[in-house]
Write a protein that binds this DNA or RNA. Structure first.
Lengths: 129, 129
DNA sequence: AAAGGTGTATTAAGTATATAATACACCTCG
DNA sequence: CGAGGTGTATTATATACTTAATACACCTTT
């Protein structure tokens, strides 16, 4: 796994974000197993306790669930999964609007910029490391 | 002054951001005096040391300068001020594109959302707390 | 000269995050 | 049965950020 963490946000928050993005992209099936805390920690090169904290919060948010001592799973509630995607989109849009309003830029101007930039970096993954 | 800080980012980072936004909006004249560390701390209800840290970083970035023991001032270099605005815009655009790409949303779809939301909250301030 | 406002610097304490090292109960698998 | 993998919990240490309390040199104003 090839994940880059920034040093601004807590790692466990970034891990949650990572799972939400994958959910939004339809990467997970409802009820699908996710890596154990220890395995995730190994994959992401983080501490098992940090992985545990991320999973615990995701459980509180209803994104994953755990039965007995079985591996945790993505929720089977498809409405929840769908809502994750919508929330991420709304969040992105609101952040963007908030930013350009505080800077006081005409909307048409930035929309042009968005279209240009979007096509420029048309792909998004090119992980070679 | 009515500034709301979040608890995610360091306060001194948010203070820098605040100044950059005001610069981007043309709020400051080149060479204009800015509040002293103690006064800013008083206005924003933060610690003078935190204000000092923000000012120090802004000096390192060339945004403000200090002569002798006079009050610090916004740089007189208009090119620098102009660049601040451009950088904030580019940053907003890139963040936005990055977000919607990781979520895998068609561009046309979110652009519609942006237009709708932008008009909805046509004003921007409604702080009551 | 004295007072007070600049910027600047230092030291200490508190909180949140991350890591580390364990520990334990539970269940499955061999 | 026993080993090993689950989730879960506890305790300790390190670091970054924030606040706090001072301190000092410099300059202007009175």
């Amino acid at each position: 796994m090839n994940v880059k963490f920034n040093n601004r946000d807590p790692v466990y928050v970034q891990v949650i974000r990572l799972f939400k993005e994958q959910i939004a992209r339809g990467y997970f099936e409802p009820g699908q197993e996710i890596p154990s805390r220890r395995e995730l920690a190994n994959q992401l090169k983080i501490n098992p306790n940090t992985a545990q904290r991320a999973y615990k919060e995701m459980e509180e948010q209803g994104l994953v669930f755990t039965e007995g001592n079985m591996p945790s799973r993505i929720t089977k509630d498809e409405a929840v999964l769908k809502r994750v995607r919508e929330e991420l989109i709304v969040e992105a849009v609101e952040n963007f609007i908030g930013s350009i309003k505080t800077i006081n830029v005409p909307l048409s101007e930035v929309l042009e910029l968005v279209k240009e930039k979007y096509d420029t970096e048309s792909g998004e993954e090119e992980g070679s490391e």
